[in-house]
Design a protein around this nucleic acid. Structure first.
Lengths: 152, 152
DNA sequence: GTAAGTGCAAATGGTTTGCATCGAA
DNA sequence: TTCGATGCAAACCATTTGCACTTAC
């Protein structure tokens, strides 16, 4: 999907709920698109967006990210380091299956794609009656590079 | 394992690292044992411990929980609601496989036990070289009770 | 006696909120 | 002209830290 199409889709989703695609929000969405693999914190989004729209305030960034998340446009990620990260949802099926590999030493965040959770979710529904709508799977450990450093 | 044995184990682990099992820490561990299914926040631990040891300060609770976590005695859980929870580790193998079911409506937290992640962790090691030491798997959705409320 | 441990209060830092103002339908 | 949106500053709140004091080997 092109960026323009994505922006139009965001505009439609906003207007459906009586919200507007303001220049600030457009700038934020563009930052998220440009960093769709970037795991940006709210502060990161703020700093990047300032380059496109220097007058923007941090509160606007938080409010926009919260709104966009409630619309399903943005995914909020929590790596357990005390701040949330934000990723634009590109609408592909795979993103549901993309998990994070967090290195305890260097803090680097890798990704891993897998659909094995499907089966677990089905079993949860059958065995407990809980209706799963989303999940968060994080693995902690040492990345390849940090292991090699430790070996030497 | 009896509570006494568990306390002795904690004392040994502390002393191995030149730390002491102070009355405050003993009270905290006892609170965690008494609430091993309780998903207590630091504040909860503080309030419960105050009943056993009224002079205790909140900072001591935080410092003790951090120390006990670094020793592997306590497991820190993050439900994404802005505060950490703490559980004593009973040393059984199963706890590694116990995941959480978080209801988005009532906030209640259920548990689910499953070892399917074993396979994913092996595949991660093979395919990416990342060495997994721990994981965190949370499912979000609606619990049985909240679904029934919605239906009516 | 020395190093670990504690309680208190102050600081920190990510996030939220109050409020006056602005802007688009 | 109404209601959503914004920027700023202040408030919030879980957690951390500085510090003087206490306690246990």
């Amino acid at each position: 999907m092109s960026n323009q199409t994505l922006l139009d889709r965001v505009r439609m989703q906003l207007e459906e709920h009586s919200h507007r695609l303001t220049p600030q929000r457009e700038a934020i969405v563009n930052v998220l698109i440009a960093n769709s693999e970037g795991h940006l914190s709210a502060e990161d989004v703020f700093l990047h967006t300032k380059e496109l729209y220097p007058e923007i305030g941090l509160a606007t960034v938080y409010r926009s990210l919260e709104l966009l998340e409630s619309l399903g446009v943005v995914h909020r990620l929590d790596y357990g380091d005390g701040q949330n990260r934000y990723e634009i949802r590109l609408g592909t099926q795979e993103e549901h299956y993309h998990h994070h590999l967090i290195c305890k030493k260097c803090g680097n965040i890798g990704e891993f794609t897998d659909d094995l959770l499907e089966e677990i979710e089905k079993r949860i529904a059958n065995e407990t009656g809980f209706a799963v709508t989303d999940h968060c799977l994080r693995f902690f450990g040492l990345c390849k590079e940090c292991q090699e450093q430790s070996d030497s």
